[in-house]
């Protein structure tokens, strides 16, 4: 039970990151390797607003999202759009450069010490023999609600139909009058905001650390790739599957031996690598429609 709850907590956070990415990757075919750092900036700004500026948490979250929006807007204009026009792989390298810049900035401004947004102790709930804090329960509920709304918007609204049309065939969608550039910018910013929410989630639930960035990015992308190109539901499902694999890897004895906690992330990622070698297009991946 505790393992499942832990997987739900870690999976909700990973799903936040992966859902935004699935949209950006589906529509633009672009990987943003600075996503983990964008998440950290969101978390750190929220921490600064609460711990240093003394603002209430809801105000701090709004401030953090505003900063993340500005950062995403500038990043899109400087690091993605000018390069994406030439080749869709170029932003992968440019966002690596962005990740280095943001890593350096985080280390200079916020230093290496772990930071937690909520300084006071967490209130604990007992569910059977498992323990969950009230904050974690709220975070899980809010994340699941947010992801449900996102899925509903994409499957049942005109905006969602435009996004799905652009995922399935970008040229055909543009020829039908869809504003591709605006859609791409909006989705990039939306994914950065999802990442910022993920950063705030980590800051509330655990500690923010500058070294987390690349791990967050790789794990979220592993979920997106395993889920299949452009499949939002696949990305969310695999975010939870990876979290569950991580918990099962270290929480249960395997042939009588417990795997050390340090291998937690590695086991799940290796399972995803093997899965993709078997099914390279991802589990829910679909091919481009053509006539």
């Amino acid at each position: 039970m505790q393992l499942l709850l832990n997987a739900l907590i870690a999976g909700s956070f990973a799903a936040l990151l992966a859902s935004g990415l699935a949209l950006v990757y589906g529509v633009m075919g672009v990987f943003n390797l600075a996503l983990g750092q964008m998440a950290l900036i969101g978390g750190y700004v929220c921490w600064w607003c609460v711990a240093v500026a003394g603002l209430p948490l809801p105000v701090a979250i709004v401030c953090s999202l505003v900063v993340s929006l500005i950062l995403a807007w500038i990043s899109f204009d400087l690091f993605v759009q000018p390069f994406q026009r030439r080749h869709r792989f170029l932003p992968i390298v440019t966002t690596i450069a962005l990740s280095m810049l943001l890593d350096g900035l985080i280390l200079i401004v916020f230093h290496e010490e772990p930071r937690s947004i909520l300084a006071s102790g967490q209130r604990l709930l007992h569910i059977g023999d498992a323990i969950l804090s009230v904050e974690q329960l709220v975070l899980i509920c809010v994340t699941i609600l947010f992801l449900s709304v996102l899925v509903w918007v994409l499957t049942s609204t005109p905006f969602g139909r435009k996004v799905r049309a652009t995922v399935q065939h970008p040229e055909a969608a543009t020829s039908l009058g869809m504003n591709g550039p605006l859609l791409r910018r909006s989705l990039f910013i939306l994914s950065a905001l999802c990442a910022a929410c993920g950063g705030i989630y980590v800051g509330i639930d655990q500690n923010l650390s500058p070294t987390l960035g690349m791990h967050l990015t790789v794990k979220a992308y592993a979920a997106v790739i395993a889920g299949g190109r452009g499949s939002l539901k696949g990305a969310i499902l695999f975010a939870f599957i990876i979290a569950l694999l991580e918990q099962l890897a270290i929480g249960l004895p395997w042939f009588g031996v417990y795997i050390p906690a340090g291998y937690q992330g590695t086991v799940a990622l290796l399972v995803i690598v093997i899965l993709l070698l078997w099914k390279p297009e991802g589990v829910f991946g679909s091919r481009l429609r053509s006539s």
Partner: peptide
């Protein structure tokens, strides 16, 4: 191509 990029990073982290 993009999957090899991400997954080669994953192997390095592993």
């Amino acid at each position: 191509d993009d999957a090899i990029g991400i997954l080669s990073l994953a192997v390095s982290l592993g």
